[in-house]
């Protein structure tokens, strides 16, 4: 008797919780996958840029192994330029029709209305948005540095190594997202909470993070290889994962959710 009641109640509870999970927040549910621009130039560029990134990394690999700090420092502007170019050419800027899709995010209590107005105000000015996105990415870099340290990166030594690695992560994975979403908190919550649909930007982020995570795997091995030094393997995983995630996100798994 009691068990029947219990089962029924549980079923109900589960039903409620499952609806809660999917309908986590109305804004999230409405987040649409980012569609790249349909112009022939954009379509060509979206395939050319990942190849360029991969090529850049491969070309700089031996230099990276020899001198990580200066190589990462000199490569960072190139990577940033590639990413800015990709964003401007292929992605819809934050606030433009493409990025906003069909949704009008409602004001959230924790959100700063001024900031949003600022981003929205730039409208479709692609160059300004891209530069803003680059600045925001670099602004986030210290936090990524802290995250890397939390994962076990050296705390007192190798500061430049870790910071530059974090900067590469930010410029690769976060710059396009900043370009597309600006500082739209619900969108970022969706991206961070694995609730955003996969596309080139969120796929790139997932790939970059997973790649960097897996990049830590070979470090402890006692193979005494030069490329095992910090943070070469992380950067390897980062670039590889990002390119793979972006390409897959833009093609095979586009629009899918976790």
């Amino acid at each position: 008797m009691s068990s029947t009641i219990a089962k029924g109640a549980v079923a109900q509870a589960q039903a409620t919780s499952s609806t809660t999970a999917t309908a986590a927040s109305p804004a999230t549910a409405a987040l649409q996958p980012v569609q790249t621009k349909q112009t022939p130039l954009a379509q060509g560029a979206r395939h050319a840029f990942p190849a360029a990134l991969a090529g850049l990394f491969m070309a700089r690999f031996s230099a990276l192994v020899a001198d990580p700090v200066s190589t990462m420092a000199t490569t960072l502007p190139l990577t940033a330029a590639l990413q800015v170019g990709y964003a401007v050419l292929c992605l819809p800027a934050a606030g433009s029709q493409g990025a906003k899709a069909a949704r009008k995010p409602k004001q959230r209590p924790g959100e700063n209305p001024k900031k949003r107005a600022g981003v929205d105000g730039t409208g479709p000015n692609a160059i300004a948005t891209a530069i803003l996105a680059l600045l925001l990415s670099l602004l986030v870099t210290p936090f990524l540095h802290a995250a890397l340290v939390l994962f076990g990166a050296p705390f007192l030594t190798h500061g430049a190594h870790t910071l530059l690695c974090a900067a590469h992560l930010a410029v690769l994975a976060l710059l396009p997202l900043f370009y597309v979403h600006g500082v739209d908190a619900p969108a970022w919550a969706a991206v961070g909470g694995f609730a955003a649909p996969l596309d080139e930007t969120s796929g790139g982020l997932a790939g970059a993070v997973a790649g960097a995570w897996l990049g830590a795997v070979p470090i402890p091995l006692d193979w005494d290889r030069e490329w095992q030094k910090w943070p070469v393997t992380i950067l390897c995983g980062l670039y590889g994962g990002y390119v793979l995630g972006r390409v897959l996100g833009g093609t095979l798994v586009w629009g899918k959710r976790f």
Binding site: A24, A147, A189, F194, A195
Partner: peptide, 11 residues
Amino acid sequence: VVSALSALRLP
């Protein structure tokens, strides 16, 4: 990190 990120989905 994963728990912090998935907390973003909490209503």
